Simulated scan of single mutants.
Amino acid sequence: MPHPDITDRADLERLLRRFYEVAFADPLIGPYFTEIARLDLETHLPHITDFWESALLRTGEYRRNAFSPHLGLHQRRPLTAAHFGRWVQLWQAAVDGLHTGPNADRAKAQGERIALAMLRRTAGPDTTGTEGGFVPLSAVLLRS
Rank of each mutant, 00 (worst) to 15 (best):
S144W: 09
T80L: 10
H44T: 10
L141W: 04
L137E: 09
A10C: 06
L116K: 00
R143Q: 11
T80R: 11
D96T: 10
F24K: 07
T7C: 10
T49K: 00
E42P: 07
E61P: 00
F51S: 12
W87M: 05
A55E: 12
H74D: 09
L45P: 15
L15P: 15
T122P: 08
H99T: 00
L90N: 11
L73A: 04
L56K: 02
A117F: 06
P2N: 09
L16N: 06
R63W: 03
V22M: 02
T100E: 09
G101Y: 07
P102N: 12
L56D: 03
P2Q: 08
T128G: 14
I36H: 04
L90A: 11
M1K: 05
F51H: 07
L116N: 00
F33R: 03
P27R: 11
A10W: 02
M118I: 14
G72R: 04
H70L: 07
D8R: 08
A93S: 13
E53G: 02
L119D: 10
H83Q: 10
A123M: 15
E53I: 03
L90E: 11
L45D: 08
A93V: 03
N103Q: 13
A109G: 11
L79D: 07
R18L: 14
A107E: 08
A109Q: 13
G132V: 13
G97K: 06
E35S: 05
A37C: 01
Y20N: 04
A107P: 07
H3R: 10
P4R: 05
G85T: 13
A66V: 14
L39Q: 09
A94S: 14
F67G: 08
A25D: 13
M1H: 10
R9L: 05
P102S: 15
E53C: 06
D40E: 14
R120S: 08
W52H: 05
Q89A: 04
F67H: 11
L98Y: 06
F84W: 15
L56R: 03
G132M: 13
F84L: 15
